[in-house]
Design a protein around this nucleic acid. Structure first.
Lengths: 138, 138
DNA sequence: TTAATCCTTACAGTTAACTCTAAGTCAAGC
DNA sequence: GCTTGACTTAGAGTTAACTGTAAGGATTAA
């Protein structure tokens, strides 16, 4: 079975070896095998697990909570419920993040239009002095 | 014109007075008026400006860059171009954040299904031993 | 008049997630 | 044999954005 060195994995996941060792130290990678001399041998499944970790991280989940999940994985079927609940909770989190982002986008787009108009007019006053025009304020 | 105290504004924006004073110190609130004794009087327009700041923050923009924007606002029409460009850039950022979130959501939803199936079966092995069933692996 | 709330400066502490250095070892490839 | 890249422990440094304390003073509402 093909294995990968720490720097190969780091490159693939856009991380550094430092970060991977840090994750290891924090207990996020309990399954990675070693050579007799102690060098980490990452399998495809380890990389897949790291991608899940990166996914959880991108939802804003702190490393200590991700560690709980990793521990549950090691504990076997008795923790299936916790793990299911955790992902359902993450799903809700991501849903609300999406809604927040949508609202943010609306404000940003509004500002883009605002500055486009101002730029075309050569002055921001176009928004303050709309009374002069035909259409009136707003 | 109605004005608001620092703690009223903090409550409305889910911040603390400490944070607002910190923003002020970092140059994010150059326009807030004061009483003769130095107490901040926030107008509706100041609160609106703070909401824009929170919006920019939620896109991941660091405070120092937000300060640039605030400075440009003070500089008047000569900076309309920078401000327009900035919001267009923010728009692109938010778009890519949305795409990232979508990918994240797909992984999370996949995991939800995975654990739902495992939970119903009582064991995670259902995924490893799929060969036994009719449908085969995957 | 008393409690609450505001202000200032100055600075220390917190948290998360790295990021790196030191010092010393080990092992594989050219 | 030399370079490269891996390893260890231990610990220091970094960054961002707060978060809070101290010390002293002013204002305002009940």
């Amino acid at each position: 079975m093909k294995t990968y060195s720490i720097s190969e994995v780091a490159k693939e996941l856009n991380l550094t070896p430092y970060t991977l060792r840090y994750y290891d130290k924090e207990g996020l990678m309990p399954l990675v095998e070693r050579t007799s001399s102690g060098i980490r041998l990452f399998k495809e499944s380890d990389i897949a697990a790291l991608k899940v970790i990166e996914c959880l991280k991108s939802t804003g989940m702190p490393i200590k909570e991700i560690k709980n999940f990793i521990d549950w994985c090691s504990d076997g079927d008795s923790t299936l419920n916790q793990r299911y609940d955790m992902f359902m909770e993450r799903k809700a989190t991501v849903e609300s993040q999406m809604e927040e982002l949508k609202k943010t986008m609306e404000v940003i787009e509004h500002k883009c239009l605002y500055y486009k108009t101002a730029l075309d007019a050569g002055t921001e006053d176009i928004h303050k002095k709309a009374k002069i025009g035909i259409s009136g304020p707003n």
